[in-house]
């Protein structure tokens, strides 16, 4: 899948979450995503970025514009080298939390994205990809 723009950002503090949000918003506006779609992908990115910070102990976010055939989209890939998630299936359920939150982060971000994938290994880290396509 062709990638037409790619930026990798550090996630070390909660200021970085704001920066990731702004970057994702810029790219989403750039490819002409509608306002609701922009808001969805920015919110999803915010959720995962906070997970990366809070549970992964920080990491990176790679923010990209991708192309497939005639459509374009925004893809964000988060990587951390934190403790990892032991039971990914369970972590994806609404209400699952280890951090005292509402447990909507992962499942909510998935609902807000057109594409979502997660790989995690205990003691190695977690990688989460979200993407939203411009329809039509």
């Amino acid at each position: 899948m062709p990638v037409t723009s790619s930026d990798t950002m550090e996630i070390r503090t909660s200021d970085d979450i704001v920066r990731v949000r702004q970057k994702v918003r810029d790219l989403a506006v750039g490819i002409g995503l509608g306002l609701v779609d922009q808001t969805k992908i920015v919110t999803a990115a915010s959720e995962i970025a906070r997970n990366t910070l809070d549970y992964g102990g920080g990491g990176t976010a790679r923010v990209e514009v991708i192309e497939e055939g005639f459509r374009r989209g925004v893809r964000v890939t988060f990587e951390d080298e934190g403790p990892g998630i032991a039971d990914v299936t369970r972590a994806m359920q609404d209400g699952f939390t280890t951090g005292g939150g509402l447990g909507l982060g992962l499942s909510g971000a998935k609902r807000l994205s057109n594409e979502f994938s997660i790989q995690s290994a205990v003691g190695v880290g977690t990688r989460i990809m979200i993407a939203r396509w411009k329809s039509g």
């Binding site: 609701v36 808001t39 969805k40 919110t43 959720e47 609404d94 509402l102 909507l104 499942s107 909510g108 609902r111 807000l112």
Partner: peptide, 8 residues
Amino acid sequence: ITLVELGL
């Protein structure tokens, strides 16, 4: 819309 989709 986004908040509702998020589940809040």
